[in-house]
């Protein structure tokens, strides 16, 4: 190693980036060359100066301010159309191919149909002169920046629904539940919106469309995971009257076994009994009832399980 090569290597040496043989050559030259030793000492002084120089540290006040503003920004972000869209995309699973297909579907959907809600809203009068956005298209929705949803009003007679939300301005979307885009907004609201009253109203709207797989999924989700026991119970009552299937049995059984609220667990037991009386015995459910009749932490649930076992065995 000559003096020029040594100079180039000195920074790497100080940062411990020299590999074995390079380091050995560097140190051999260092031992033999006084001029390079002096140059290295100069580099070391700069290195120490840079290292010792005071570096800024975040103050607790600054950190608190950052957290607060981020929190507000996330609140805003959470209710944006982007978030609803992400929820929709996520429902297609994590596999990139599936999600890409979902994205493509959405694009085709958006451009292909060019939907407007107004024509379908004819049967739903707009109360109190509330502004109704005629001719909404997907690009409008993508820029909404929804802050909150203040009302979801289903109309069982017409099959329509009205969604009132606060975005950059308050808008009301009206459309039929037959419209999959309306259903999607409701499904995303059911799964992600933080106001339990709105989720409860959304549930009322969705129970008119339980044949739709996405609605069915949202109801099963709410029954199992909604943080509010009242919403879970309402979702359960809707599931109870849905067409039976393996997923409903399993979903109800999960509620019986895992829900934190004894009232919801008891309602799930009743729903399962009703299903099994119509469709015949399910040994897994019976075994679970027998187990919970002695092990559930709530005496009412234990009693309900015991009664259920007797009724089912009586029918069997």
């Amino acid at each position: 190693m000559n003096c020029k090569e040594f100079e180039n290597a000195s920074a790497l040496y100080l940062y411990d980036e020299l590999r074995g043989s390079e380091r050995a050559e560097f140190e051999a030259h260092l031992a033999a060359c006084a001029a390079c030793r002096a140059r290295l000492e100069e580099s070391q002084r700069l290195h120490r100066l840079l290292t010792d120089c005071p570096r800024p540290e975040p103050t607790p006040d600054l950190l608190a301010r950052c957290r607060q503003t981020l929190d507000e920004a996330l609140d805003h972000e959470e209710l944006g159309w982007r978030s609803l869209l992400r929820g929709w995309m996520w429902s297609f699973g994590a596999a990139p191919a599936t999600r890409a297909a979902a994205a493509l579907t959405l694009i085709v959907f958006g451009f292909g149909l060019g939907w407007t809600l107004r024509p379908r809203a004819a049967a739903l009068p707009v109360a109190g002169g509330e502004p109704t956005q005629a001719g909404f298209n997907p690009s409008d929705l993508s820029n909404l920046h929804i802050r909150s949803i203040s009302q979801v009003t289903p109309d069982p007679q017409s099959g329509g629904v009205r969604i009132t939300l606060d975005a950059e301005r308050r808008v009301t979307l009206e459309g039929s539940l037959d419209d999959p885009r309306i259903r999607q907004v409701l499904v995303d609201t059911m799964k992600g919106y933080d106001n339990p009253g709105i989720r409860r109203d959304t549930l009322d709207a969705l129970r008119m469309q339980t044949d739709d797989p996405s609605v069915r999924g949202a109801l099963m989700y709410a029954m199992a995971r909604d943080p509010n026991a009242g919403v879970r119970l309402e979702a359960l009552k809707t599931v109870q009257h849905m067409e039976c299937g393996a997923d409903t049995h399993q979903g109800l059984l999960n509620v019986v076994e895992h829900d934190s609220n004894a009232g919801v667990r008891a309602a799930a037991i009743d729903a399962l009994v009703q299903h099994l009386q119509q469709e015949g015995m399910d040994d897994a459910v019976l075994a679970a009832f027998e187990r919970l009749a002695t092990s559930d932490r709530d005496p009412v649930v234990r009693m309900r399980c015991l009664t259920a076992v007797r009724r089912l065995q009586g029918n069997g």
Binding site: E57, P58, L63, L74, A94
Partner: peptide, 25 residues
């Protein structure tokens, strides 16, 4: 990833001091 805000907040709290420190630098 499923949209759980509380979980996201917890992730932020794990890293945000260091992120802020780097930003200040």
């Amino acid at each position: 990833q499923r949209g759980d805000r509380a979980a996201f907040d917890a992730l932020v709290r794990r890293y945000d001091q260091e992120v802020l420190r780097m930003a200040l630098k």
